[in-house]
Amino acid sequence: GEGFVRMVTAAFGYFRSHGGGRIAVISSIAGTKGLGSAPAYSATKRMQNTYIDALAQLARMEGYDIRFTDIRPGFVATPLLSGDGRYPMLMRTEKVAARIMHVLRHPRRRVVIDRRYALMVFFWKLIPEWLWERLKIRKDD
């Protein structure tokens, strides 16, 4: 978390002093709701999402043309995930990289990589807390 904040703050300061720019970050769908199978990871990603939201608001309040893109992929087939259980809807790195490059060329404020994950996140947001806390969402289900 600290490294993320330092890097984004440095970029924000640079663009603030140079009249504007675009900051793109890769966070995760895990920031949408706290996942019981990865509580610290979920909390870190939620902090990243909130930090970007706050800086976007600050840029507007101060009249700086600094734009943000928050890229939120789901599970990507990288060595980090290999051998650590079964992950649902695992995406190929090539597909994710191509989608990220597309987003960087045609920026939006917030992008969930892969339509399946976008749909899943949409429904996650509709689930009330009392029910969410009772769900057993695990990477190996």
Rank of each mutant, 00 (worst) to 15 (best):
K136N: 13
V103I: 12
D70K: 06
M91A: 12
V112G: 01
A54Q: 08
L55I: 00
L81S: 06
V76Q: 08
L80C: 06
F123H: 08
R67N: 05
M91K: 05
T44M: 13
R67S: 05
Y117W: 15
R86V: 11
T93D: 06
L55Q: 02
R134N: 14
H102N: 11
L90Q: 06
L90Y: 04
G83I: 04
L55Y: 01
D114I: 00
Q48N: 13
K136C: 12
R138Y: 00
R86W: 03
M120E: 08
R115V: 04
D140K: 02
D114N: 03
V76Y: 08
D65S: 13
G83S: 08
H106L: 05
M61Q: 15
P79Y: 03
I100D: 09
A77L: 07
L58W: 11
L55K: 01
P107D: 07
E94L: 09
R60D: 15
F75L: 10
K139I: 02
A56F: 05
P107W: 10
Y117S: 04
R46W: 12
I100A: 07
V103K: 03
P107R: 11
R67Q: 11
I66L: 08
W132I: 03
W130S: 08
P128Y: 14
L119S: 08
N49L: 09
N49W: 03
V111W: 00
P128V: 12
T78W: 06
P88F: 07
G63K: 08
L58C: 14
R134E: 14
D70C: 07
E133T: 13
R99G: 08
I100M: 10
I100Q: 07
A43M: 15
W124K: 01
W124H: 01
N49D: 15
T69A: 12
A56E: 06
G63I: 14
M91N: 07
D53V: 00
E129R: 12
R72E: 09
R134G: 14
M120T: 10
R116N: 12
G74P: 00
D65F: 05
Y64H: 15
H102L: 09
Y117A: 02
R116Y: 13
Q48M: 15
D141K: 01
P128K: 10
K136P: 05
M47R: 06
R116F: 10
F122Y: 13
M91S: 07
K95P: 02
A98P: 02
D140S: 07
F123R: 09
F122G: 01
R108T: 11
Q48D: 15
V112Q: 00
R86P: 02
K139M: 03
W124L: 10
Y87S: 04
Y64E: 06
R109C: 10
